[in-house]
Amino acid sequence: MSDVAGPTGRRAVAARAVREAIGLPAIVLGASYLGFGSVVREGGMTLTQGLVSTATAWALPGQVVLVELWALGASVLAMALAVALTNARLFPMTVSLMPLLRHDGLRGWRLYVLANFVAVTGWTFTMRRAPEMPVADRSVYFLAFATTIWLASLACTAIGFVLAGAVPRSVALGLVFLNPLYFLLLFAAEARAPARALALGLGALAGPPLHLLSPDWGLMAAGVVAGTGAFVGMRIAARRKASA
């Protein structure tokens, strides 16, 4: 490709991405990672371990699942499967993002490095912005946006960890409560899509009783049973609609 932007063009794209990231995306994600930092401390992991988690497995729900199950003493296999199921959404997200970023000057291992930064917030913004940009600018935008909020996540993991040990106990407990509450509110926003609402509702109902049955496998069982139920329900509803 001959229309690859020069250094000034790239710098402008990166600057725009950083500007758009520092704002609501960094604030919301940062706040949720304050919660994660406190979950790490209360779960019995160290600050370094919390930072390694955010650095190498950046995707909040999977990180919370891992620390929770580890603190419960779950087996490695149970943790691996539960994290895999929780983070499976990263697969379709990557599948849909890569064709937008790929071009003659960007293929092979570089795409695998970019893929490590695929997570909900950066993906949503890039999917929205990319189609209106020249192909060569898209990966610059994505990487600048994602690394900005990734750095915010790392900083807030550390701040949350330190805060949880420094504030009064009732405030520290409030911080630990931040993650479940954050996810609950995201669900309230997502529940407009009927299949998701069904999956969320069934999952919430199945979670506590299956946990009592088996702390090790209950979470995964709840996900598979309730998720499959929602999937089947959605297919049946779609077929009825099609034949009506």
């Binding site: 729900p61 479940p180 299949a195 199945a206 299956l210 996900g223 998720g227 959605m234």
Partner: peptide, 18 residues
């Protein structure tokens, strides 16, 4: 992929409820 999405949402809802 739709099935995987349903399972991921249900699992997270189960965790939050728990």
């Amino acid at each position: 992929i739709q099935w995987v999405g349903c399972v991921a949402y249900a699992l997270l809802a189960a965790l939050v409820a728990r």
